[in-house]
């Protein structure tokens, strides 16, 4: 079985979260998933461009989707919550509003493209459940993550707003738990499971966001988690790279390793932490993982 997707990496995968690019490719290869990176994709706008120009925000993402449509695949896959949201928002707006779609297409026409609406936008997490199947994933597990206690931090944009995302109930999603359990890990219950990481306002609301980061690390720590796992590189960056800044606002030790979803999957597939670039995180995740797992 080979699944083929058009792949939208998003800007962070090219720089600050290159380890997610590395681990996504490794895991896709090991699972037999073919990812065709869009040639000439642009940044999705990351929830900022629409504050300046809503129509432009829709247009650049219509272009991204149109690039996928011209590849003749049925789905465009991302590994970032916010990219998924931005692309799906643009798509939904155009699919619901014929006039807007026509207007966007006037612009795209000048760029030699057409948005048709034939490609679905999905996230790796959903694709694993919907297309690949948990049973098939389980068959690929060579190092079950027995004893590893993971805290699943969804990040808001993988579930909200539900009229755009709609994969599962936004008030009590289970997809992360299903995948983590298929890999043999144990999921801990913690208050901040569906919290916001604050990343999109880390500049204007630095103080508030650092407090949130501290709470988001402490909550799973108190619940006994070995690490946080997230399906979003932006959540990962906020919780990991800013953790030392957040620590300054707290007396208690907030230390909590934060890994990407594909890294967790890769470990269970027997790929080494180095190959998954887990050594690249600011808060070293390897000791916590080594304590519980026989790592490759």
């Amino acid at each position: 079985m080979t699944l083929t997707y058009a792949f939208f990496p998003g800007c962070t995968l090219e720089s600050a979260a290159e380890e997610l690019m590395i681990s996504t490719k490794k895991v896709a290869e090991a699972l037999g998933i073919e990812l065709i990176e869009l040639n000439g994709w642009t940044c999705c706008g990351a929830s900022h461009i629409q504050d300046i120009d809503n129509f432009l925000s829709t247009s650049i993402n219509a272009r991204n989707i149109a690039l996928a449509e011209s590849l003749g695949v049925s789905k465009l896959l991302t590994v970032c919550n916010t990219c998924t949201l931005m692309l799906r928002t643009a798509k939904l707006k155009m699919d619901k509003n014929e006039r807007l779609k026509e207007q966007v297409n006037v612009g795209l026409d000048r760029a030699g493209l057409q948005y048709k609406g034939t490609v679905e936008v999905t996230h790796l997490l959903w694709a694993l459940l919907e297309d690949y199947g948990l049973e098939n994933l389980k068959k690929k597990v060579t190092v079950p993550l027995k004893g590893l206690k993971v805290a699943n931090f969804y990040g808001c944009h993988i579930v909200m707003p539900p009229d755009v995302m709609g994969f599962e109930n936004h008030r009590n999603p289970q997809s992360m738990e299903m995948v983590a359990e298929a890999l043999g890990a144990e999921c801990v219950e913690f208050d901040q499971r569906l919290a916001c990481c604050g990343f999109h306002a880390v500049f204007p609301a630095q103080k508030e966001v650092m407090t949130m980061t501290g709470i988001n690390c402490l909550s799973p720590k108190e619940a006994g988690a070995d690490c946080i796992v997230t399906p979003c590189p932006l959540c990962q960056m906020q919780l990991d790279a800013y953790q030392p800044d957040a620590q300054k606002r707290f007396d208690q030790d907030i230390t909590m390793p934060i890994i990407h979803l594909p890294q967790l999957i890769g470990l269970a597939l027997g790929i080494s932490p180095e190959e998954l670039a887990i050594n690249r995180h600011v808060v070293d995740a390897i000791p916590a993982l080594q304590r519980k797992l026989q790592l490759a």
Partner: peptide
């Protein structure tokens, strides 16, 4: 009153 501090978390609208 901190308009730019909205986190874009989508809770309100959801």
């Amino acid at each position: 009153n901190d308009l730019w501090k909205c986190l874009h978390c989508m809770q309100c609208v959801s």
